[in-house]
Amino acid sequence: MTCTQKPAAPTRRDILKSGAAMATLQLAPGVTLMAFGGSEAQAAADAGKRWGLLIDAGKCAEGCSACVTACADENGWKGKGDAERDAQWIRKVTLKNKATGRTSELPVMCQHCESPPCVDVCPTGASFKRKDGIVLVDKHICIGCRYCMMACPFKARSFVHEPVTNQKTHAPRGVGTVEGCTLCVHRIDAGRIPACVEACAATGNGAMVFGDLRDPESEISRRLAEYPSLTLRPDLDLNQGVRYAEI
């Protein structure tokens, strides 16, 4: 990151510091702080928190895919144009109400369930839920069986079908393993918000709110308390971290 620009030899401290500097930079715009509901920037997974997203389909603009592009850039999963096999950590879904004909759009990604079916079925325990509710794949022990993809009700996971190169340092991914939205865990650990939420805010639509569902003072909790919202497939009783409003 930094040392490629710096002629002087970097020290270990420099590298660590550069991460911290980035965090403050991103925290500067008000939106970021607001999304955290005033909570302090985090250094690591905190069992006292449960990260979540609120997606307001009413504000999600037609034809806009800023969140998808931002995610692909941030995590380096842009494919080669084979739609059936390319990874898709987040996608825009267009809905048409069968009764009224009204259409709406919204992004769908890993819903970070409280009781995730992928974690239940994973034979090696590679699919796991972090203390703060983020559902991840430990790709170091993923054997590529794809049972989690069979089990996920949201098609939120992709299998890497081909060898990849030029990954992002903070988002390793490779052939033969399963992957999906990490809620930008590397950013959250540095006190930043997910790339999709940041990009959505930058478009001015502000259809995505990120925050701590356990903190009653966070913006996400206040909005959830005030306005109606729902989770996908409520029949499955998964208590997802991602909620939708105004579908």
């Binding site: 739609a83 879904v93 267009t94 809905l95 069968k98 769908v108 949201f154 579908i247």
Partner: peptide, 16 residues
């Protein structure tokens, strides 16, 4: 296809 949104017709570049 799995039905994520009962009552809606879903479509997406990811074959919903």
């Amino acid at each position: 296809p799995m039905e994520l949104f009962p009552g809606y017709e879903a479509s997406s570049p990811f074959f919903d």
